[in-house]
Design a binder for these strands. Structure first.
Lengths: 349, 349
DNA sequence: CTGTTAGCGCGTTCAA
DNA sequence: TTGAACGCGCTAACAG
C-alpha cells in the first residue's frame, strides 16, 4: 500500500511520475506488456503479470487517466448536472448517482447550475471537452440534453422530461403520487383543497397538477380553479402565496408540490397559529428529513430520491455499455404515501 | 452557439470530432496558432484570433481536455472528498466549494467516502490517476491527506485537522462556538448542562468539548463529568443516549455537538413531552434548515458552512497558483450564535 | 506574431 | 504470449 515518497513531498515535484516505461524497465518487460498485465484481461502469463504488478507497486506507479482517455477517446467520468445541491432533493439524487458510479468504477463530475440555462449550457460544453461518455441532468432547458446527444454523449434526464425528446428519463410517477396524496385528503372529507405549485412547464409540476385534478375528477368533485395557487420556487414566496390562498379561498387542506414550498406553507400556518390538522391539513410532495421532525410531522409523498438517482446511474451505464435496445427508456419510480400527523378529518363548519 | 450536428446524433459516432488541425485548416493557419488564439492570452493578432474563433465555431470544435491535460501534465479538475452528501453540512460544504471552482473555471470531482478509510484511500488513488492538482477533503484518516501530499497534490482539509500535519486547513472555530453556546445557557441560569457528543478524536469534536469545558471554567462552575454523554454518529443512538442522560443526570439543558445528534435529542424530548424550553433547553452546534422549522426553533451555532466551502476552494486555488508563502495556512471561520426559542431560563426547582 | 517540431503516457495494432 | 511502432490531440519550445 506504500506509495512512492516524492523526495520533497512538495507539490511542485508533481512533474515526473513513473510511467509504464519505468515499470517496464523495472520488471524487465516491454511497455505494452505492462499495459496488458496491469489492465487488460488475458494476454499475459501469470508470472509476468505478478512481476509487473510488484514492480509497479514498488516504484509507486499510478496510471495516468488523461493519457488513457486520450488514447481510448473516452473517459470513465460521468457528468452530473443538477440545480441546487443545497436542496435535499438534489443532494439525495446526487448521492444515489454517486453511489452506483463509484461502485462501478466511474467518477462523478458534479455541476450545480442553479437552474440557470446559461450555466447549464456552459457546463455541458465543459463535459463535452472532458469527453465524458454520459451525462445525467435535471434539465433546465430541452436544449441542453439535445446538444449533448447531438454531440454523441449519452444522456439520462432525471426528475423531468421534455415532450418529443428521445432522451432516456427517470422520474417519480408524479401524477400517481399527487393523486394518491389528494385522494387521501378527499377521503378525510376535504373538498376545498389548495394546491401550492411553482411551475407546470416541466413534466414534474405538470404531472403533480394532473394528479391533483385527477383525484378530484375521480371523486366527482369539481375543482375551484382559485384553489390552484401558483407561486415561485422559493419558501418566502410560497409563504406569501399561502397567506393569500388562506384569505381568498378558505381551504381546509393544502397540498404543497415540493419540499421548498412546504417550508413556506408551514411557516405561514404556524405563524397564524392555525391548528394542524384540526383547523387545516397540510401535505407535501417530496419527503425530506425535516418533515418528520416538525410537530405534527407532515404527511408526504416519498419519491425515493436516492433510488431515483441510482436508477439514473444504472440506466446511463447500461447505455454506455450498449446493453440496451435503442428504444428510449422511461423509468417511472412509484412513489409512496406516508401518512403522518399533519392531515386529519376536514373540520365541520 | 450552434454545435456540429453529428450525422446520426448517435452516441456511437462519438469517434471523430474536429481537432485543432481541422480548425487550423479551416482558418488557414497552423495548429499552434489555433491553440494560442483560442486559449492563451496575447501572442495572437486580433484578426487572426477572430478568424480562428469563427472557424472553430463553424466546424463545432470542442477542446479535448484529456489531450491538454496530458500535454500540460495537470488538470483543471479538483477532487472533493466528503463523508456524506445527504448530511446538509457536507452538501453545503460541497456547494460552497463548487461555486468557487466553477467561477474560476475548474471542475469538481465529488466522492462520497461514507467515512470509510478504505473508500477514502481508493478515491485518493483515483484522483492521483486523474492528475488533479488539488484535493479538498474532510479527512477520515490522516493517511489520506498525507499520501496525497507525498504524491505532489495540494491538499486542503475541511472541518477537521490532524495534529502535526503540515496541511492547510479550513475549519469552524469549534472551541469558540461551543463556548459561546454554552455560555448562553449558563447566562440563562443553567448549571447542569448535558453535552451530547459522538467523537473527540478529530479536532472538531475535541474543540467543541473544549469550548464546552471552557465556558464552565470561566463561569466558575465545575463540570460533572457524567454530563458529557458520548454516543455514536447516528440520530437513533443519540436518542437513546439522550434518554439515559435525562434519567441519570437530570440536566436542565442539552447541547448537541452537531446536527445529526440534535435530531435524536429533539425526538426524545418531544416524545417525552418535555416542554422546551420551560422544562429543558436544547441547543445545537451546526445550524441546518430544519432547526428553524421546528417548534420551538432551535438555538444554534451557525458555522457558515457554505462560506467554509468557499474558503477551502479559494485557499486551494491560491496554493495551486503558487500565490502563497510555503507556510501552512489555518483558516478559522468564526461561527455565530443564533438564539431562537429552544433555550430559556433554567427552571426553578 | 507565427509556423515547425516534438513529445506528454498510454493502448492498440501488427509481427514475431 | 510478447515486443516494436505508432498515434490519440494538444501545447511547449524553438526558430523565423
Amino acid at each position: 500500500m506504500s506509495r512512492r515518497q516524492s523526495p520533497s513531498g512538495s507539490p511542485a515535484a508533481a512533474s515526473k511520475r513513473p510511467t509504464v516505461q519505468d515499470v517496464a524497465r523495472e520488471a524487465g518487460v516491454s511497455p505494452s506488456t505492462v499495459s496488458r498485465a496491469l489492465h487488460t484481461r488475458g494476454y499475459a502469463s501469470p508470472d509476468v503479470r505478478e512481476r509487473v504488478q510488484q514492480a509497479a507497486e514498488r516504484i509507486g506507479y499510478v496510471l495516468n487517466h488523461n493519457a488513457r482517455n486520450l488514447r481510448s477517446r473516452t473517459s470513465t467520468s460521468i457528468g452530473v448536472l443538477i440545480s441546487d445541491l443545497r436542496n435535499p432533493f438534489y443532494a439525495d439524487l446526487a448521492a444515489g448517482i454517486e453511489e452506483v458510479l463509484r461502485a462501478e468504477g466511474h467518477q462523478m463530475m458534479l455541476v450545480n447550475d442553479n437552474g440557470d440555462p446559461a450555466e447549464e449550457m456552459r457546463a455541458a460544453e465543459t463535459l463535452l471537452a472532458m469527453r465524458v461518455p454520459g451525462v445525467i441532468v435535471t434539465p433546465v432547458t430541452a436544449a441542453c440534453p439535445r446538444m449533448l446527444q447531438e454531440n454523441g454523449v449519452h444522456v439520462v434526464c432525471a426528475d423531468r422530461e421534455f415532450p418529443r425528446q428521445g432522451v432516456d428519463v427517470v422520474l417519480s410517477d408524479n401524477k400517481a403520487g399527487a393523486r394518491e396524496l389528494t385522494e387521501h385528503l378527499i377521503a378525510l372529507g376535504h373538498t376545498r383543497i389548495g394546491l401550492l405549485i411553482d411551475e407546470t412547464k416541466w413534466s414534474t409540476g405538470a404531472g403533480r397538477l394532473a394528479g391533483f385534478r385527477a383525484a378530484h375528477t375521480a371523486a366527482g368533485l369539481d375543482l375551484d380553479e382559485g384553489l390552484v395557487a401558483f407561486t415561485s420556487f422559493d419558501a418566502e414566496a410560497a409563504r406569501v402565496t399561502t397567506r393569500e390562498l388562506l384569505r381568498a379561498q378558505a381551504p381546509t387542506a393544502i397540498v404543497s408540490a415540493n419540499n421548498v414550498l412546504a417550508q413556506g406553507a408551514l411557516a405561514e400556518l404556524k405563524d397564524r397559529r392555525l391548528k394542524i390538522p384540526q383547523r387545516i391539513s397540510l401535505a407535501a410532495y417530496d419527503d425530506v428529513p425535516w418533515m418528520s421532525l416538525v410537530q405534527p410531522a407532515l404527511t408526504t409523498i416519498d419519491q425515493h430520491t436516492v433510488e431515483l438517482g441510482r436508477s439514473c446511474a444504472r440506466l446511463l451505464l447500461a447505455r454506455i455499455r450498449a446493453e440496451l435496445p435503442a428504444k428510449r427508456r422511461i423509468i417511472r419510480v412509484p412513489p409512496r404515501l406516508i401518512v403522518r400527523g399533519s392531515t386529519g378529518p376536514a373540520p365541520t363548519p
